[in-house]
Design a protein around this nucleic acid. Structure first.
Lengths: 117, 117
DNA sequence: CCATATTGCTACCGTTTATGTAGCAAATAT
DNA sequence: ATATTTGCTACATAAACGGTAGCAATATGG
């Protein structure tokens, strides 16, 4: 069914219900969506800065994700580059605890070598 | 590079750093991972129950996700079916606020039709 | 005991998505 | 005017996903 933007109320990739949480999970469950939000949490970034912070993700995918995130009102593109909207910042606030949790998870499951950040 | 399990400390899909947060985002950024955790938050479920709650996701994908989640110590498979581990429940606790936030997001961005849950 | 059903799962194959490189038009800087 | 930088598109290849069919193992019922 080749879904582009996972609007709530509309069926999304794999999901026929269109519940908001499923639409959100569909959006967040695409490659680099979470990473993009994470990287934009501090500063606005240019396309290429964002690309390099996302480990050199291909511009094709980066541009797709940015379009989706703009259409879902989580990211916009002002004079200083791409940045989170107010809603995007709200979402990042929910996401922020994942940072320290992931370190704890890493230590518990995989040992000490998990490393920084 | 065909990455199977996104262990922190090891390069993951697209990411060369292996930072825990990137490993976690890689894991969560695969189709149905978030949905599976969401569905297992209340009860243990059999493979087929879980499949039907995930809108009939194909068994191929479901089995892949379950293997990954088991290997990452977020899900296990006891006598009553698949269920979240203690770590999995911790992660769900971080994820739970996304439910109500997604409803608010849906109303703000797409209008009122977003619907329940 | 034998048939039936359920469970967890694998094989296959076609479609979709992602990756990776090259490069172009517009804006900015020198 | 020349050279960079920026945002982005066009391919081609590789990986992931979706969907159906079906199998071995364990229950369940007659």
């Amino acid at each position: 069914m080749a879904v582009s933007i996972p609007r709530p109320g509309t069926p999304v990739r794999g999901s026929k219900t269109g519940k908001p949480i499923m639409a959100l999970f569909d959006l967040l469950g695409r490659s680099w969506t979470l990473g993009i939000i994470w990287q934009l949490s501090e500063d606005a970034l240019t396309f290429r800065d964002l690309q390099s912070r996302c480990e050199g993700v291909s511009p094709t995918v980066l541009n797709k994700r940015l379009k989706e995130l703009k259409e879902c009102a989580l990211v916009d593109h002002g004079g200083e580059g791409y940045r989170l909207t107010a809603l995007g910042q709200e979402l990042f606030a929910l996401l922020a605890p994942f940072g320290s949790w992931s370190q704890n998870w890493s230590r518990n499951v995989f040992g000490e070598q998990g490393g920084e950040e």
